[in-house]
């Protein structure tokens, strides 16, 4: 038996009784960052394979969704910062050992390519919007330039999108102090999950039956791959050191078991995989429901990963101090 008790008052906010530094803002950012990566990948792929007829939405209209999703994500990321006025400090140095620094600089590369990717399709996809842009002095020139270089831009978008998607997972897995995150599977898992959440957008909004069918088929494959990666993630913890086994216990009988299995794996992965499969057989409403559940599952994956990872720790103090006692003294 070993029992470790804090005997002096320690109840530092966001640390005690367990880590709670990152909340919904980070989960939303990781979700939208992954989705952005998926959007860029599918839009670039449709462009490079010249599928403007078969995959009209992905070819001409999908790219615009990427800057919208990423900008929303960046907003929640900004909301998470405690020292907001110093956000520019991310760009006064590059710290090669910090995944967060890599992420900040990847975004600097992603943004212009993502904007150019959007501009290269704007005239075909959103003619009204393109019309407004024509009125700005350099608007037409930039769109001409983007259209002339659209295949090069699409080719550039692919590695950047892969980097963005993987980075959202590596951001967590690089923090070895949190045993639940210590798995190399997190990067690929977040990338595949991001692609899956992006793939359901055309399923929901494309007017072409063939395009919807293509993305439904793709999504069934991606969800299956996600199930495999979640399994690899759990196995990598199960074959780890004592701290990893303790972290695994959080979802295998511990306090997060119900949330992980009943609120993520079943409704966010297994049910949508079956429904999407039925959608492929012609039941459109099943396909739509599967899409909504995929979005839900994508968010729950990030939300639970962020929550559970913070609870997993190398230290194991019982905190005896009750901050309410201090409040009573000061009243």
């Amino acid at each position: 038996m070993i029992e470790e008790v804090l005997v002096t008052a320690r109840h530092n906010p966001k640390i005690d009784p367990s880590l709670g530094i990152w909340t919904w803002e980070i989960s939303v950012y990781l979700f939208l960052g992954g989705m952005t990566a998926g959007i860029m990948l599918f839009a670039a792929w449709a462009m490079l394979t010249r599928k403007q007829e078969v995959l009209a939405f992905a070819h001409d209209r999908f790219a615009l969704w990427a800057p919208i999703a990423l900008s929303l994500g960046m907003t929640t990321l900004f909301l998470d910062l405690e020292h907001k006025l110093y956000v520019w400090r991310f760009y006064t140095s590059f710290e090669p050992t910090s995944p967060m620094s890599w992420g900040a600089w990847i975004l600097v590369l992603v943004y212009p390519v993502m904007i150019l990717q959007t501009l290269s399709t704007l005239r075909r996809g959103y003619p009204t919007l393109a019309g407004w842009l024509e009125r700005i002095p350099v608007g037409g020139w930039v769109m001409d330039l983007s259209e002339n270089w659209r295949r090069t831009i699409a080719a550039l978008a692919i590695p950047l999108a892969v980097g963005l998607g993987i980075y959202t997972g590596v951001l967590l897995s690089a923090l070895s102090a949190r045993p639940f995150w210590s798995s190399g599977a997190l990067g690929p898992l977040f990338l595949v999950s991001g692609m899956s959440t992006a793939a359901v957008i055309p399923v929901m909004v494309s007017r072409l039956k063939g395009e919807r069918h293509f993305f439904e088929t793709t999504d069934v494959g991606l969800i299956f791959l996600e199930v495999v990666l979640v399994s690899i993630f759990l196995i990598s913890l199960a074959t780890g050191a004592a701290y990893h086994l303790e972290a695994l216990d959080l979802v295998m009988g511990g306090p997060f078991t119900e949330a992980f299995w009943l609120w993520f794996v079943v409704p966010g992965l297994l049910v949508p995989m079956v429904l999407a499969f039925l959608g492929l057989r012609g039941y459109r409403s099943f396909g739509l429901l599967a899409s909504v559940l995929v979005l839900y599952g994508g968010f729950m994956l990030r939300y639970l990963m962020v929550e559970i990872g913070q609870v997993s720790t190398w230290t194991d103090y019982a905190v005896q101090f009750d901050p309410q006692l201090l409040e009573r003294l000061t009243q």
Binding site: I15, I21, R89
Partner: peptide, 14 residues
């Protein structure tokens, strides 16, 4: 310091 809290998450000693 931007208050990103990465250092807090990175400390195995909390």
């Amino acid at each position: 310091c931007t208050g990103c809290k990465a250092c807090i998450a990175a400390c195995p000693y909390d």
